[in-house]
Simulated scan of single mutants.
Amino acid sequence: MPVDQIPIGTFSRITHLSQKALRLYDERGLLVPAARDICTGYRYYTFAQVERGIRIRHLLWLGFGLSEVEAILEARERGDAGTIREHFARRLAETEREIGRLHAIAEVLRTQDPLNGGFRMSITEPVIKDIPATRALSRRERGVYQEAIPRMIGEICAYVYPADGRQPAAKVTGPIMFICHDEEYRETDADIEVALPIAGSVNLDGTAIGVVTLPAGRFASVLHTGPYPGVGKAYERLFAYMNEHRLVPAGPSRELYLNDPAEVPEDELLTEVQFPVEDLPLSP
């Protein structure tokens, strides 16, 4: 065996990549052995391939999938730093979202109330409200709830309340809200709208914010007090009420955020959940 040929077992120990993984990378063309024994099919690598193997392991440790690893290594071979920065920026955003989720889980586990599924909260009895049509500033896009909602809220608030101390850009007439336009929960590519009720004229030049009229309707409503991850219990209470009163959803749900998480403890966060409803049709 030539000196520069490294058996797959030794190459596995050097790079900390399992032989099973190395065979997969060979099949994908991601890390192809320099030589293969004609009789046994045994794979051999070169010392020059060690760097690529270690780079693959490092990218996998950072959380990239194999397709992303392939794209990053191809971009590196082309000297395309821009593409690599884009991949790293996306992975950083995903990691920060996961850190936030884990912090929230840790806080719940630290202060859990076992009788309420781990959340300290209260929920009011549901009521029916007739809500008029409402003019509002709006941002709507597709994305991930945990990332898009706080960012879009920040964009609207930054427009309305300029950081340089100028007068507010609009007269606010109600709490900011999240409107869910999907009929099912989506981990990604969710249809998300954030809206802030206003009155009077606004100048939206140079912004991605629009003005919409939220439709009037008859809404079932419940008020949740407690951390945002526990709001699911409010939906549970609301749907039980709707079932009891023979009501069915008639449009997108709304979550109204009645106070600021930067100003009050999590246990005091107020979220009103609203669902437009109509009576269940009578059976023939």
Score class of each variant (00 low, 15 high):
E125V: 11
T15N: 13
V202P: 07
R76D: 13
F119I: 09
P2R: 09
R166L: 09
D279N: 09
N116W: 00
S253Q: 00
L258Q: 04
L238V: 13
L31S: 01
H245V: 13
I149F: 03
N243P: 03
Y228N: 01
V277H: 04
N203P: 12
E96W: 02
G174C: 13
V108I: 13
R78I: 14
A262N: 10
Y257T: 10
S253H: 00
G251L: 11
L280N: 00
P150Y: 03
E155V: 11
Y45L: 02
A35F: 10
I14Y: 10
P33V: 06
V50Y: 06
D164W: 05
E125M: 05
F88Y: 13
I72N: 03
T271D: 08
F178E: 09
S12Q: 10
S18C: 06
V211G: 06
P7S: 13
V160L: 03
R78L: 11
M152L: 12
G226F: 03
R110Y: 05
R43K: 15
I192V: 15
I14P: 01
L256V: 05
R90I: 13
L256M: 12
T83L: 14
I56F: 01
E94W: 03
Y257A: 11
L247P: 12
V3Y: 07
E255H: 07
G53W: 00
T134C: 14
P215T: 10
E183I: 15
V231N: 07
G79T: 11
G53D: 02
K129F: 11
E98R: 06
V273C: 12
G210N: 12
T134A: 08
R78S: 10
E74M: 07
V69R: 01
S67G: 15
A136N: 03
L109P: 00
I72D: 00
K129L: 14
G9W: 10
Y257R: 06
V212S: 05
S138N: 15
M1H: 15
I128P: 10
V144P: 09
L115P: 01
S18K: 06
E147F: 11
G29V: 11
V277F: 04
E244M: 08
I192W: 04
R78A: 14
L196F: 09
V50D: 04
H103T: 08
V32R: 07
I131R: 05
R135K: 13
R52L: 14
D260W: 03
R246D: 06
R52D: 14
V273Q: 02
V212Q: 06
T225W: 00
G200C: 11
E187H: 14
R78N: 13
R28A: 08
G143S: 10
P2W: 01
T95L: 12
H16P: 00
P265M: 03
E278I: 15
C157S: 01
T15P: 08
I38K: 05
G217V: 08
V277D: 00
V273R: 02
L30M: 12
R76K: 04
P33R: 05
R135F: 10
L24R: 03
K20D: 04
G82C: 06
A163C: 04
R85W: 08
L22A: 10
L31K: 01
E187G: 15
A148P: 11
E125W: 00
L73Q: 03
V50N: 06
Y228T: 01
L66G: 01
R246Q: 14
Y228A: 10
G117N: 04
I209T: 04
M1P: 15
I179Y: 00
